[in-house]
Design a protein around this nucleic acid. Structure first.
Lengths: 288, 288
DNA sequence: TCATACATTTCGTCA
DNA sequence: TGACGAAGTGTATGA
């Protein structure tokens, strides 16, 4: 692990450090006054201002201002970074193809440049995803409906893959769509697409069904939306389509964990605390 | 504009710098060896490794590894940052409410800490959005269909707002859904939702229509998906529903601009170039 | 490479 | 504040 850091470098110095860092495969941060141009899937211009540029060895580039979780401009991993000095400015260009996109950052001044070697420690253990919800449903199918039996997951249809496909106690096919959070009309539309596709499939030309039988088959494909909650509109649409809602979310490990992490009431040890409060919130604690 | 930067500070030093930076409302970067815990909408654990932590004065917190455009862990703007030293580690905690979420970064070592005052220069000028596509359609309605006349944008329906609503030369209602990029089945589902909602509306209980008239009205609501292109499945679904596709994207300013930015063949000036190539790409240019 | 859907999506806008 | 859909969405997975 090595860190290089230069304060207010000349453009030539900055360029040299960038080149070195590129070769080493370092994670680079450049803080300075710059303008940013982007062109590709869309196009954008950003006027002069102080920003933080992050260049990753995998080709990702991020331009951050003092606000927002999302970079104001960026380039995805797989891009190629270039640096040069031209017209008295340090230019960092990041290009990629497919789609063709270019990000150009022009520094009129570099306040600080750092480069650090980073390796490994990238695998995140995440709980509470939709996959966890599916696991839960498969372990306890009766949560969907009495006598529900899962047949397959990710079952392919003409409209896309169904999360869980199964049969109810009457032997009727059931299409289950899982959502880890509160859902709106789009989720109902998604479920409707899948149900329609399964219907078409089961009543398709290849089948020997009289009209009345086909009609019966139509109605017999059930749709179930599993989600912690629905918006009003989603509930209306769901009812219109004759689908069901099962109120269920991912296992609630998260809820308890929050308290564990958030808990700082037992600050018995050592040095403590400073805080900053976001936006229009209260002022930071002045020293106690 | 001020930059503070400390190399390999003790935890106490780091804490003090963090506190000061919080009070100044600085943009902070901390590079060091740490573990990360998150709990909230989901929950996650990240083992020890070198990472870059960014703390913004608006309450945003980002944990970046050497890979990816997306932070491995984060906290959205509006969170509140705390710092403390406990059990021989520098802890940075970021909390928010609604939903309750906590991010906890424990540094066993800080390699570098920087803080910089950043203001303004945040407004991005972006071209090629869906709004640009809408403008184009409204300026040249005949692109949708011969004799098409827009009536309203963002027209509310029971299923959500319709991008562009209008009538064709036969006086039949037309629902237009705009997409700035190639679309899949989900976009067809969205259009289908809106068309169905408008149908229900126009053939609702309040209307005095005989059955055969209602049926006519049903068929007469047209659906048009405007997008540069469709996937095969989306095309099939669209055809099944009897909707139309109009191949159209945002004005192609972007395409030309790419070339302008990407063009570095006329490197006539000054100092030039270093590059890093992503992933499995070619090796960086050794000095020329 | 493309298609498809999830995501701690984030973000803006509007009621 | 919640709802709704766009986004230069990014990301993983499967064909």
């Amino acid at each position: 692990m090595t860190v290089i850091s230069v304060h207010a470098p000349s453009h030539r110095e900055a360029l040299w450090e960038l080149e070195s860092a590129f070769e080493r495969g370092d994670l680079i941060t450049v803080f300075g006054r710059c303008t940013v141009s982007y062109a590709g899937r869309a196009a954008s211009e950003l006027g002069v201002g102080d920003r933080l540029l992050i260049l990753k060895p995998d080709g990702a580039a991020l331009v951050h201002t003092d606000e927002g979780r999302t970079p104001v401009n960026w380039q995805p991993p797989g891009s190629t970074h270039h640096a040069a000095v031209r017209e008295g400015r340090l230019r960092v260009r990041s290009k990629r193809t497919n789609p063709a996109e270019t990000l150009l950052v022009r520094f009129e001044r570099v306040h600080q440049l750092s480069a650090m070697s980073v390796t490994g420690g990238r695998d995140l253990e995440l709980h509470g995803s939709e996959e966890d919800l599916r696991t839960r449903v498969l372990e306890r199918p009766e949560l969907i409906a009495p006598g529900f039996e899962p047949v397959s997951t990710e079952r392919e249809t003409a409209a896309g893959p169904v999360d869980v496909f199964g049969v109810d106690d009457a032997g009727d096919p059931v299409v289950v769509e899982l959502k880890r959070r509160r859902v709106g009309p789009d989720a109902v539309g998604q479920l409707a697409r899948y149900v329609a596709a399964v219907r078409d499939e089961l009543t398709g030309d290849g089948e020997f069904l009289a009209d009345h039988e086909a009609a019966t088959a139509d109605d017999s494909v059930r749709g179930v939306l599993v989600a912690p909650s629905l918006t009003d509109r989603a509930a209306d649409l769901l009812a219109d389509r004759g689908f069901d809602h099962v109120a269920l979310g991912p296992p609630a490990d998260a809820g308890e964990s929050v308290d564990a992490l958030a808990d700082d009431s037992d600050d018995s040890d050592d040095l403590d605390d400073s805080n900053t409060t976001a936006g229009s919130g209260s002022r930071p604690d002045e020293s106690a």
